[in-house]
Design a protein around this nucleic acid. Structure first.
Lengths: 129, 129
DNA sequence: CTTTCTCGTAACATATAAAGTTGCATGAAA
DNA sequence: TTTCATGCAACTTTATATGTTACGAGAAAG
């Protein structure tokens, strides 16, 4: 698919797509081809790519919207709060990232196709039990 | 302390302080008094207030900066991702909030005083072993 | 009873970061 | 050589959090 097509599917802009895909490309998850007939293709087996790989490719953005503004703040209150919560934050993050590692794109694709079938059935017989 | 004093300590504005403290006041954690000699006082024993109480008083802001934009999106891909990760997000959030419930303001105050003492010693003998 | 000090709150302004856009160079196929 | 695509830098827009101003109301001091 081209960035143009992807951007329409996701209701955004081709350049935004390229910015995001650049990270995936650098990790060898997708490939891009220029020129006529070009666009994006997946370059690995879906079962070999986990959401953790995607997370890494996207630059490991902040997981939490809370806490830990600074690792070693001057403020002693901040230090005390950090000391009390750092372990919990680390554990929570580890839990999430571990789970990201367990989910492959193949898993998501399979679930998607399941939902797709369900969706078609529902649309055909909207009042079925 | 007055909002004015607090705002200077935290390098911000009195109105910002009042906005935040309003939540704590509505939960009965702090009290405010108007007029001459007024300001903010803590209305409960520090050991009876947990960070979870504070979190609740502040309106339970989003814990994660990631995932779950919509609980039940139309997009089937989004649905598949949510299905794969919702449990992990819930567990991670539960872990954090449980920890918030275990930390009281008294704990933080005790740790703060410890750090305060250490800090004074260090300043007096900056080259001590 | 007037002045001073404080919070309460609404309205407005600013700053920051995310998202979107434009423009143009580069590469590839028709 | 025209068309179509990505790559990338620069710029603009938007959304949100933060900060500010203004003023009303309550409470103590003089």
């Amino acid at each position: 698919m081209t960035s143009e097509q992807l951007s329409k599917t996701l209701s955004t802009n081709p350049v935004v797509i390229r910015r995001i895909m650049a990270g995936l490309r650098d990790m060898g998850i997708v490939q891009s081809e220029r020129g006529h007939g070009g666009g994006w293709t997946i370059s690995r087996d879906l079962s070999s790519v986990s959401l953790r790989d995607v997370y890494t490719a996207l630059g490991e953005p902040m997981v939490f919207a809370l806490g830990n503004r600074q690792e070693m703040p001057d403020c002693l209150v901040e230090q005390a709060v950090n000391a009390a919560l750092n372990d919990a934050f680390r554990q929570a993050e580890a839990l999430l990232i571990q789970r990201l590692g367990e989910v492959t794109l193949a898993d998501l694709a399979a679930d998607f196709h399941e939902r797709w079938k369900q969706n078609k059935t529902k649309k055909a017989n909207p009042h079925a039990a």
